[in-house]
Design a protein around this nucleic acid. Structure first.
Lengths: 343, 343
DNA sequence: GATATAATCTAAAAGGTTTTACTAAATAGA
DNA sequence: TCTATTTAGTAAAACCTTTTAGATTATATC
């Protein structure tokens, strides 16, 4: 019933627990004959060191936690996160780290954080002001923010504002004036203010392009949408039923834009002839849908890798007892990718 | 630098470490005034119990490990796993458990397993004979197999054979004789024999339908493909260049079938007029592509939930010291879903 | 033959919590 | 007033490993 531990192996091999530990971790401290005997005994008994005990003493578990802004089921439905997690995990492979995902669960991230034996967090979609994040800071647990504003910790962001600007600019320059904007809903709610960095930046980018050529910004043409195809569909339909007849559409996420394409086609519109569409993210789906989605490219995969690199950097500077006042804020570039949903 | 521990809090609050522990876990053992004082002090000092120490003594971490058959980057590109993980995580939410994914890393799953502080594993796509799995069994770590043959542990599988049979039957009954089969490559390689349960079952199902109406089974019409759209594309092209001119196609995974659709359309074929296609899985993509993919439905989400349910059942029977000789082997049903790629 | 060094191995501490068993003080019961 | 019970708190063991410092024996040096 009980799992075999180091003492069991030691007893059977006729040595001390220390010797068993050495046999695995510092074999040069032991007679090679003894090492072999101990290893044999261990294999025979199916012994593996208890990872919790090991992590407890080493003060590190080799696990990094990824804190996600939405329940895992929502996140997994979003191609943006697939690529992002791929980026992190490719780095994990190289560094022999394991990955653990944390999502708001039963409304309580706190609990999940409290019982996570991780060496640090990559936090996606929260600002530093967020309650959970400030808790980590107080506790002295290292973290890196992604898609969120930071000053006390390293962060990775993209140039959301510029990307959005490029997309909107492209459309207004072509003469469009009735542009429907399906914005991330995180820009609206007032309950979770901390989430809103990315959405606000994209909104500002769109707005800047409008202002530059004096296109009127009408709030009723900006709809909040959840980041999913369903969200895009529903909001396009809602806009249409309110009497809006856009000639172009800006989707603040690819999933939203793709949903909108489908809704538009279903209403008999032709894309891009009747409706030009530009999304955001350049997720894998963008090049797969028909017609291919024009969108703002961001280096999602790289974002994940850089985030983990920064976290590892934090560990190293902590180990070297360097208090780097200059925490690294990384900004990755964005650019416009034109495919079939624009002419 | 050092994280505040229970002793620090105890000292500052003028009580013993035991009292601090009680303040959080068994407040009724303490004067409520004392409880408040301790809790205040803890919050003030940013104290959280060390999860490793806690897990060490509790002999459980509240984390379940999901062992995947491919690197995480591959898995995340596969919609089948999205839905499957969603199923597990919905159950995790309900049970206040955390989720940790393990993938073959640097060729060594062993290492990752060894340092994973998990209460049990959900193992996807491996048979019981697999080296890592037998290691777990020997070690006495609980696990549940998904998409793999089991006798010593609980398992969740679908009726792969019947689903495949239904798909093939539909096509042969309509008179097709030149049917290209893009099979999971796991059915072929001889190095990783343990992986092949699912693929072999699907192959047998296809074959049974062929045999039933005496359609000749030609091995050169069966191609191994990786489970991705790229894989489907490449293999359809390869078949075409070998001179094969199928009138119908069976894809052993939706991703493969979708890739094949695209390759066929690119060659000027009309789907379903020139080529009828049936996939496998009924992943979310199946209903999104144009034309909608006819496919074999399996309850992927439920599969994830059931897997975790079984694992929890294992914990309970272990706690009750019940050695259930009758380990549960769950078989979920499959059925055919017809959409636009069949007439 | 005595001493210095190297080779093997072990005892004990440390890591941070929870839990069990126990003490001391206060209250209740008679 | 004395005993029984409750209340409030603590000391120490347990969880399992790694690591440090030390012990014992064998080997090399002079």
């Amino acid at each position: 019933m009980k799992r075999t531990n180091i003492a069991d192996v030691a007893q059977k091999a006729g040595v001390s627990p220390t010797a068993v530990s050495f046999a695995f971790n510092k074999p040069e401290q032991l007679n090679s004959e003894t090492v072999n005997r101990i290893r044999m005994t261990a294999i025979e008994m199916g012994y593996m060191p208890n990872p919790m005990a090991r992590a407890l003493i080493a003060q590190r578990s080799g696990i990094i936690g990824v804190m996600l802004p939405q329940p895992l089921s929502t996140v997994l439905a979003n191609p943006y996160f697939h690529t992002f997690l791929q980026g992190i995990s490719s780095m994990c492979d190289e560094q022999a780290l394991s990955l653990m995902t944390l999502s708001p669960m039963n409304g309580s991230l706190d609990q999940a954080i409290a019982r996570s034996p991780v060496d640090g967090f990559i936090i996606v979609g929260y600002n530093e002001a967020h309650h959970e994040v400030s808790l980590l800071r107080k506790r002295g647990i290292q973290y890196v923010l992604v898609d969120g504003d930071a000053t006390c910790a390293p962060s990775v962001n993209i140039d959301d504002e510029q990307g959005a600007y490029l997309a909107a600019k492209y459309l207004v320059d072509k003469g469009h004036r009735d542009i429907l904007i399906l914005m991330l809903d995180t820009a609206f709610g007032h309950t979770d203010e901390e989430l809103h960095g990315v959405a606000m930046r994209r909104m500002r980018g769109y707005r800047r392009a409008f202002d530059e050529v004096s296109v009127v910004w009408r709030n009723e043409w900006v709809l909040p949408s959840v980041s999913s195809m369903i969200g895009g569909q529903q909001n396009f339909d809602a806009a249409y039923e309110q009497g809006l007849r856009p000639t172009a559409l800006l989707g603040a996420a690819d999933a939203i834009a793709i949903g909108a394409i489908q809704a538009a086609i279903r209403r008999g519109m032709k894309v891009p002839e009747d409706l030009e569409i530009i999304g955001y993210d350049d997720s894998v789906l963008a090049s797969l849908v028909q017609p291919g989605l024009s969108t703002v490219h961001q280096p999602i995969f790289e974002k994940g890798r850089v985030a983990l690199e920064l976290l590892i950097g934090e560990w190293e500077s902590a180990a070297a007892r360097v208090t780097d006042a200059s925490t690294k804020q990384v900004w990755l570039p964005t650019h416009l990718v034109l495919r079939g949903t624009t002419t």
